[in-house]
Design a protein around this nucleic acid. Sequence first.
DNA 1: GTCTATATATTGATAGAC
DNA 2: GTCTATCAATATATAGAC
Lengths: 215, 215
Amino acid sequence: MTVTETTIARATKTRRKTRIQREKEGIILNAALDVFSAYGFAGTTIDKIAATAGMSKPNLLYYFASKEDVYVTLLDKQLADWVVPLEQIREDGDPIEELRAYVRRKLELSRQRPRESRLYAMEIIHGAPHIKTASFKDLRKVVEEKVAVIQGWADAGRITAINPTHLIFAIWATTQHYADFDVQIRAIDDSDDDELFETAAKSLETLLLDGLKAR
Amino acid sequence: MTVTETTIARATKTRRKTRIQREKEGIILNAALDVFSAYGFAGTTIDKIAATAGMSKPNLLYYFASKEDVYVTLLDKQLADWVVPLEQIREDGDPIEELRAYVRRKLELSRQRPRESRLYAMEIIHGAPHIKTASFKDLRKVVEEKVAVIQGWADAGRITAINPTHLIFAIWATTQHYADFDVQIRAIDDSDDDELFETAAKSLETLLLDGLKAR
DNA sequence: GTCTATATATTGATAGAC
DNA sequence: GTCTATCAATATATAGAC
């Protein structure tokens, strides 16, 4: 066996072990997202997560130090993804089209990742006890940046005057509502998934953006 | 002592006892609203509520049979108040003015009763395990009624075409956002309470209603 | 790495004295 | 009506065998 072969074998072995570990962690995190987003942090037991993930409680605790460890890992991941759609707004694009695309992205996330939306919403409603001040400062920085962009558009007369911060709040609120208040919406509206989200998208564009078109 | 006097004394005594009981229950419910809205149902302990209410745990359980009993009492109260602002929309009023007043009422509630808003939001996000199907049916009925009213305004050309159901969803989402996501909003916006809500009201009117004005 | 068994802590609810 | 003491049930986390 050559040195090269040995190196490859060792690297492969290490890599595979790591990959398996990551797979297990992925299974746990996916199960945890199910349970946390449905029952909240306090309402979730390690047993429930372990059962959902198809393993025993001590086995789960072999991969994560504690229930809080699992939760914070999940939350940090969500926080990182949180601002991405906002960051994608481009100053040099067409204002209405940029905002329209932003609303679409956020609504799409509500549809495709409602568990993440609910997890985040619950954490905020509870006063964000697990979110570091630094994370909020990062969010604030991105918001301030995009607020300046939108204000610039308004100043240039490319959209009508609006408070950009509250426009962003309104986009967050309306799009996330479809994930977070799903139960209530389903009790009121009988549309199937496709129809509901298509109608929501059109309605939100009309409501939030039609009034912004410079005349 | 005459019969009349005895009767009065007895009635007074009974009445006073009931009033005191109601006062105690009120103190407990207020404390419970504090704790439930901050920590959720599972995250709340009877001890925390009792301590906030300034009494012992067994004393609290003298007035309410269980933790769930306290919670459901609060939730039912909130459910009853929930649809009132919507019900107040009048078909024979000016459409934009009726909707404007509705937005104001909902925003005002977010400001003055944020705990109730958060309690309700958490219950919905968790899948509304304590809300009876009948309650949702009541809500649905009121929504359908007002959807017909708004649709009628649109059909008559008094407002521009919009999906009334999603307009109502948007009003709920945006107004409640200021109560439910308070922590996040405060991390982004430094305005004091008065300024924040005044700017929010103006922004929501512009965003949600300006586009609806018939032209 | 995964299991069973268990130590330790918390909590909902009750018993019973005053 | 209010208290102290306590029971019974859960749940987090660990010990230790395999």
